[in-house]
Amino acid sequence: MKKKEIKKKIFRPVSFLPLEKIIYPLITLLAFTGIWHGLSTMYPTYQLPSPLDVCRGMMELWGEGVIWEHIRVSLFRFSVAYFLAAASGIFLGLLFGWHIRLHAAFDPFVQMLRPISPIAWFPLAILWFKVGDPPAIFIIYLAAFFPILLTTIAAVRSVEHIYLQVALNFGTRERDILTKIIIPAAFPQIMVGLHLALGSAWIHLVAGEMLGAQSGLGFLIIDARNFLRTDWIISGMIFIGLLGLALDKCMGWMEKRINLLWGHVMKN
């Protein structure tokens, strides 16, 4: 009996009022800002500016249009790197997922490269690509490529056998098996990889832009530190966080749309 009650408690669906969804995070935000403000009174501004200082800093960056240029540059690098990673990761993932021998040949190599943080590639990135966009794009690419590659391989591998048997029964040619069976069957899982990679790529964007770049959100932060504009550092961080959140939401929305179109049920 007791077990049943516990179960009930765990599995009872919780429903929010629409207002609650706004109020709860707002309370957290207010509390956080309050504590932050309290702490900021104990430190000099260059170490911890108050929330108000940061607000002013944000307005400043916004008003002068500086922030837009940085965002534009960052998004450009990010999209180039991300699309390169998606194209090459999905292509190789399909190849390795389908051809078992090829996978056996490359897997140890991939597994060895994978645990190397993209940040460890910094020196090489600089040596190879000098300064500007290319080293940053390279770092972001690395951050996105491996999750996409690995999930695509796993996705192809886990395509249900029965689909292939049905395809075989209908006399499907190998080319059609790839386009009409493997890709659509693996797509939802590939999408998960794309989503993961988006987060990883965005995180490494900042790192990538801290080396050699003369623009972008990562550069903004580093540059602000050189002038001890701590309010701009935090403003930059907030912009990065908000943009990352927006990208993630966009991706989630696209994922949902595609799954619907594809007829897959979201497992929640």
């Binding site: 029965i162 048997q165 209908f170 007829g263």
Partner: peptide, 18 residues
């Protein structure tokens, strides 16, 4: 397998994306 001889599987094997 041949297209002239169809098998219907136990759990159908319908393509969920179609």
């Amino acid at each position: 397998p041949h297209v002239k001889y169809m098998i219907l599987f136990q759990n159908y094997g319908l393509f969920p994306w179609r």
